[in-house]
Design a protein around this nucleic acid. Structure first.
Length: 587
RNA sequence: GCUGGUGUAGCUCAGUCGGUAGAGCAGCUCAUUCGUAAUGAGCAGGUCGCGGGUUCGAGUCCCAUCACCAGCUCCA
């Protein structure tokens, strides 16, 4: 989350944040102390404060269960009541190792500290913990807290290491702030795209196909709108569109390097005694499409887009609604170019992604991901590619963080992250620079010198996956999509049977104007029909009765601001069409 | 995949000590013709995730498995 403040406000805010940080850090120590009292055999790992609270990792012989949280919470309350003084102690390395003789993880941490590091501890009553601080001064300050969950977490975040028990909690300066936070979490649950997708009849995932989503008629309207918008924008930017097969011969995937670096994520099948793979990425198909003929430098850059359906075997525990699925459509494109064109092309894509996200009012963060351990190509190539991306980011004056070792196996990438309703971020857009595939597929173009040259390639997506983007979109707007994206834009509601003919006329006029509409002719009270339309988050309701019939008008009600009074049907249609054309966010 | 938790009607949930499953909403039928967030009555709806086991008897206890949720790992 990006927050902007003015000078003084910023200072106070920073101080408050630091205080809250210290409080939460202390809360994690109090929790560790409580755990130590209740389960003496437990070993301590690490326990930092985090954006929304704190956690502590423990190595326990028997895993904690949910019921343990209550006991631990009760003990924490006792420790707070004891009002222990929290003191800082600095020790020499030897002393520190001696003090932590029974804490193997702490010893590992101490040994990992640089020679000149100050080794500090914080002590409260009988509990001492290796810690850089800062902390609040008394345990009584830790009074508004709640333990939230117990989960597994690998030591040092490495799945090769032992899985520890992590207890998450949150703490605030006072009860009110804590309650407010818990309330907000409840509210956020209502925006969950999995819930809204079902309620609004957009999409769902069934037990019969874990990670393989279904899209229903209204969800398809949304999808198709996103895709048409995408096609129109890409055409403007000089992209062409192709479509490559979902299933291709396994040999292709050996050639591309996917077999060596991505096999575990791929699905395979056999056709007439031959081995085939279901594509997890669109690039190899794109390579073949590019290779269909010889290219001149005059034709470069060549921007070939593809809305490609890919399948990837994700770990069962990683699946998450539409955010992480096992089959999804990437709004992919491969840009083939000369090395001189790299920077301009990367900058263009950065600008394109920025433009797209602004249309939806999305805030995003940027990451540069560098060479992973499992990758192909030479160091020089990787360095050149990484520097090219870095340079583009700097030219663009974009703030970004570096994600070491998180690049694709064929090249470094710039990732664009969007936030879901509870602040988790998801990678959507990405720009990947690739010197490897052109090599592997022996791609070439004829230069001005009449010789063959190797093109460079960019893989890039803007939405990322249509599925994930729809999930983010749903949560961002809490299901109340802006008018231009709403599956149903207008609902005509007749007051009584005698208005049916007139209502149907209005309905037909809307449809003739290309406005996605529904009509409600049921013999229900209008309060009931309005309530239903409101819950369906339809942007506009047109209520028609005697008054409207006489004047040839419609009574407009917006889902946002309620009764807007009556206006001529044509005027309403004009208003809607204008807002749709502008992709207005407040309509 | 790993750790903890949860699976009961389309949805949200109740179901006591093991004694044979219930509500609200949604759906259907009928009545009602109504002016800005719920008209009334009636009907129907369940292999209690799936498979074993214990028991005279299992939604409830045990085992196994699948899916989901939170987190870790991984990723668009």
């Amino acid at each position: 989350m990006v927050i902007y403040f003015h000078d003084k406000e910023e200072d106070t805010m920073m101080n408050q944040m630091n205080e809250l940080d210290a409080l939460r850090h202390s809360a994690s120590h109090v929790m560790a102390q409580a755990v130590k009292r209740l389960f003496p055999g437990v070993k301590l790992a690490i326990g930092p404060s985090i954006e929304t609270g704190f956690y502590y990792d423990f190595d326990a012989d028997t895993p904690f269960i949910t019921a343990d949280l209550e006991k631990i919470e009760a003990e924490m309350k006792k420790i707070a009541k004891e009002n222990l003084k929290i003191e800082r102690i600095e020790l020499l390395r030897e002393e520190a190792l001696k003090l932590m003789a029974n804490e193997p993880y702490k010893i590992e941490l101490i040994n990992g500290l640089p020679d000149d590091a100050v080794i500090s501890f914080y002590k409260q009553g009988e509990f001492v913990d290796l810690c850089a601080g800062p902390h609040v001064n008394y345990t009584s300050k830790v009074k508004a807290f709640k333990l939230l969950s117990v989960t597994g977490a690998y030591w040092r975040g490495d799945s090769a290491n032992k899985m520890l028990q992590r207890i998450y909690g949150t703490a605030f300066a006072n009860k009110e702030a804590l309650e407010e936070h818990l309330q907000r979490l409840e509210e956020a649950k209502k925006r969950d795209h999995r819930k809204l997708g079902r309620e609004l009849d957009l999409f769902d995932i069934y037990e019969e196909g874990p990670g393989f989503p279904f899209f229903f008629p209204k969800g398809m309207v949304l999808r198709n709108l996103l895709e048409s918008f995408w096609r129109a924008e890409h055409a403007k930017c000089g992209y062409t569109e192709i479509r490559t097969p979902v299933i291709l011969n396994e040999e292709l995937w050996h050639r591309s390097g996917h077999w060596d670096h991505y096999k575990d994520n791929m699905y395979f099948t056999r056709i007439d005694e031959n081995d085939y793979a279901i594509k997890p990425m669109n690039c190899p198909g794109g390579m073949l499409a590019f290779k269909r003929r010889l290219h001149s430098y005059r034709d470069l850059p060549q921007r070939m887009a593809e809305l490609g359906l890919v399948h990837r075997h994700e770990l069962s525990g990683a699946l998450h609604g539409l955010m992480r699925v096992r089959c999804f459509t990437q709004d992919d494109a491969h840009i083939f170019m000369t090395p001189e064109q790299i920077e301009a092309e990367v900058l263009d894509v950065i600008a394109l992604i920025d433009r797209f996200y602004k249309v939806f009012d999305f805030k995003y963060s940027v990451e540069l991901s560098t060479r992973p351990a499992d990758s192909m190509g030479s160091d020089e190539q990787w360095e050149a590619a990484t520097n090219a991306l870095k340079h583009a980011l700097e030219v663009n004056k974009k703030d970004y963080t570096v994600n070491e070792g998180d690049g694709a196996f064929y090249g470094p990438k710039i990732d664009f992250h969007l936030e879901d309703s509870i602040g988790r971020t998801w990678q959507c857009g990405t720009i990947q620079l690739d010197f490897q595939m052109p090599e592997r597929f022996d791609l070439a173009y004829i230069g001005p010198d009449g010789e063959k040259h190797r093109p460079v390639m960019i893989h890039r997506v803007v939405f990322g996956s249509i599925e994930r983007f729809i999930a983010i979109l749903t949560e961002h707007f809490a299901g109340a999509f802006p008018l231009w994206l709403s599956p149903v834009q207008v609902k005509v509601i007749a007051i009584t049977d005698s208005h049916h003919a007139y209502a149907s006329g209005v309905y037909q006029a809307l449809r003739d104007a290309g406005i996605r509409s529904e009509i409600d002719l049921r013999s229900e009270k209008i309060g009931y029909k309005i309530r239903e339309a409101q819950l369906e988050k339809v942007p506009y309701m047109l209520i028609v009765g005697d008054k409207e019939m006489e004047s040839g008008a419609v009574a407009v009600r917006s889902r946002k601001s309620g009764d807007m009074g009556s206006m001529g049907t044509d005027a309403f249609i004009g208003m809607v069409l204008k807002a749709v054309l502008e992709k207005a966010l407040d309509a």
